[in-house]
C-alpha cells in the first residue's frame, strides 16, 4: 500500500493511502484518507476487512494507535467500513462519525468499544485541535445517507464515490488528462448514482466551495482546474442509467 502526503501545514496534514498491490483479486481498489492534527487522527472510509492489516500497518508508521481517535464512514458499504469490527478491537478511545441513517446497519460490523456519532442529514462540523472539518451532505451519491468531508483551510473535498473511477491498482494517484479519464468514470456514475436531482443539487453546493483538490474513494485525485472540469462534466451527465451489454 502506498502513502502520499497531499497537504501539510503547521496545524495538520492530509495523507492518502491506496494502490495496495497486495490486495486480494476481485476486490475494488480503494483510497483511504487520513487527517493528522496535533493530538488526533481521523481515518476516512477506512475500508474493508481485507485491507485492515495493510491500512493499520501504514497508519502506525504515521501516528501511534492511541492517536487514532476518529473514524468517518461516508456511508454503509463494505468497502467503506466492513473493517469496523477490527478497528473496534484495536482502538482505545475512538468515535465513528457516520450518517444517522446507517447507525443500526453499521453496528452489524461489530462495535463494542467505539462510540457512534450520528451525522444529521444537514451535515455537521468536527473540530480536531482547532482544525475544522465539515461533513458535507452528498445524499443519493450514491448511498441514500451519504457525506463528503470538506476542509476549508486545506481546500480539500474528500468526495467519497463522487469522482470515482474503476482502474488498476498501479494507476497514478492524480488525474493527468481529464478527457481520457472520463471513460473510467462514466459507467460508475451512471450506474451507481440514482438521482439527477440529488446530483445537480450537490454540484450547485460544491461550486460554492473553494476546492483545490477533490479526493474520491476510488481512482484518482482531481487538482486545480480538473475540479471545475469534473463539476461541469458531472452536471451534464445523466445518471440513474442501466447500461445493457
Amino acid at each position: 500500500m502506498k502513502s502520499y502526503t497531499i497537504f501539510e501545514n503547521p496545524s495538520h496534514k492530509w495523507i492518502v493511502l491506496g494502490r495496495d498491490v497486495d490486495k486480494p483479486d476481485n476486490i475494488i481498489d480503494t483510497n483511504q484518507y487520513v487527517v493528522i492534527t496535533k493530538k488526533n487522527t481521523l481515518l476516512m472510509d477506512p475500508g474493508g476487512i481485507e485491507l485492515f492489516s495493510a491500512m493499520l500497518a501504514n497508519v502506525i508508521k504515521l501516528v501511534p494507535v492511541e492517536q487514532i481517535t476518529h473514524l468517518f464512514a461516508s456511508h454503509q458499504d463494505p468497502d467503506i467500513i466492513s473493517s469496523l469490527g477490527l478497528w473496534d478491537q484495536a482502538l482505545q478511545n475512538a468515535t465513528l462519525h457516520s450518517p444517522w441513517l446507517w447507525e443500526g446497519f453499521i453496528r452489524h460490523f461489530g462495535m463494542e468499544h467505539i462510540s457512534y456519532s450520528a451525522i444529521p442529514d444537514e451535515g455537521s462540523d468536527l473540530k480536531l485541535d482547532g482544525v475544522n472539518l465539515e461533513f458535507f451532505p452528498a445524499h443519493y451519491l450514491h448511498s441514500s445517507g451519504n457525506f463528503n468531508v470538506y476542509d476549508r483551510e486545506a481546500k480539500i473535498l474528500m468526495s467519497g464515490d463522487i469522482g470515482a473511477a474503476l482502474e488498476s491498482a498501479d494507476a497514478p494517484m492524480f488525474v493527468e488528462d481529464f478527457d481520457s479519464h472520463i471513460e473510467k468514470m462514466k459507467m460508475f456514475h451512471q450506474r451507481w448514482m440514482p438521482s439527477n436531482e440529488a446530483k445537480n443539487d450537490w454540484v450547485n453546493r460544491a461550486r460554492a466551495l473553494d476546492i483545490e483538490m477533490m479526493c474520491p474513494q476510488h481512482g484518482r485525485i482531481f487538482k486545480g482546474d480538473d475540479v471545475k472540469r469534473f463539476l461541469d462534466w458531472f452536471e451534464a451527465l445523466p445518471v440513474g442509467i442501466l447500461h445493457t451489454k
Binding site: 493499520l56 500497518a57 502506525i60 494507535v65 492511541e66 492517536q67 484495536a90 482502538l91 482505545q92
Partner: peptide, 10 residues
Amino acid sequence: SHFIDSLNFG
C-alpha cells in the same frame, strides 16, 4: 516502525 508498540494495548 516508530509507533509499533502503540499497538500493544489493543
